[in-house]
Computed example of a mutant assay.
Amino acid sequence: MIGSKRSNFVITLLLILGALFILFPLYLTITIAFKTPQEMAGNLLALPKNWSIQNFLDAIEMTNFFNAFRNSAFVTIFVVIFTVLTNSLVAYAIARNMHKKWYRGLYYYFVSAMFIPFPVIMLPIVKQTSAWGMDNLVGLIILYIIFNLSFNTFIYVGFIRKIPLELEEAAVMDGASTWQIFWKIIFPLLGPMNATVAILAGLGAWNDFLLPLVLLSEQDMATLPLVQYVFQSQFSTNYNLAFASYLMAILPMLIIYIFAQKWIISGVLRGSGK
């Protein structure tokens, strides 16, 4: 009994510490975004004396925020749609043919890509996409879909293999084609996994900095993470405007994640098993 209470106390303490590590940076981001430069010289942890939105207005003007927001939204929406459609198709073909050596090898090939750091392949990708004229938002979307394939194949295949083959055999007896079986039977059953994949793909595309940095060739194509550079100078950083811009950039995905986190956790757990 004493050991159980001690274990519960340790777990509770760790949870509290974990929450503080998450909430403290968020608290600083919000308070600094509303402070004036003069208030920054005082107590950093103190609340702003006057909650002014001027920092947000200045940040919007300096970063051309709405143009960057449109670029990020355009990339994210198309990445989510086509990632779900294409990655689920690939995973279905692999899952229903895992008994064949070629498909099994293809599965392990895709999964092994998860262990390759992006900086290793960064320069060849940049050179090749530039040669093909893909150093734009469309090329960025295509690369995100491809990069998502390895992890999504892993979780999709695990989930699809749990779906009884009898459902497909019955559909074949009724004269359904493979294409009809996937879209009318399998794809609706993939609802939890589709939600998980869509959320993770959306978060990744919205928040990514490195790939747009090395790929996009024009300033007008910059996404939200890229335009944060405007607050950096050689000797100092305008933290008030920078944090206001950061807050506006992360707010949409933060709201989505808060309401959709249960889909992410349950989807990964369902897809990780055989």
Rank of each mutant, 00 (worst) to 15 (best):
E166H: 07
L167D: 04
K162V: 05
E166P: 00
R161V: 06
N152K: 00
T178L: 08
V157M: 06
F151P: 09
G175T: 11
D174H: 13
W179S: 13
W179R: 12
T178A: 10
L165K: 08
I155M: 08
T153E: 02
F151Q: 11
I181M: 08
F151I: 05
S150V: 03
I155Y: 05
E169L: 13
Y156K: 03
T153V: 12
A170P: 04
L167E: 00
F151G: 07
T178G: 05
S150R: 05
I163H: 10
L167C: 01
G158M: 09
E168T: 02
S177L: 09
F154M: 08
R161F: 01
G175W: 03
F159G: 03
F151Y: 15
F154T: 00
A170Y: 10
P164I: 13
A171L: 08
S150K: 06
K162Y: 02
D174I: 12
P164K: 14
I160P: 02
I181H: 02
S150N: 09
I163P: 12
Q180T: 14
E166S: 14
E169I: 10
I163D: 07
N152A: 03
D174W: 15
W179A: 15
R161A: 12
V157D: 06
R161D: 06
E169S: 11
T178K: 12
R161L: 01
L167S: 06
G158Y: 07
S177D: 11
E166D: 11
N152I: 04
N152Q: 10
Q180H: 06
A176P: 01
S150Q: 08
W179Q: 14
E168I: 14
I160G: 00
N152D: 13
M173A: 10
G175E: 07
L165N: 15
T153M: 05
Q180Y: 08
E168Q: 14
V172I: 14
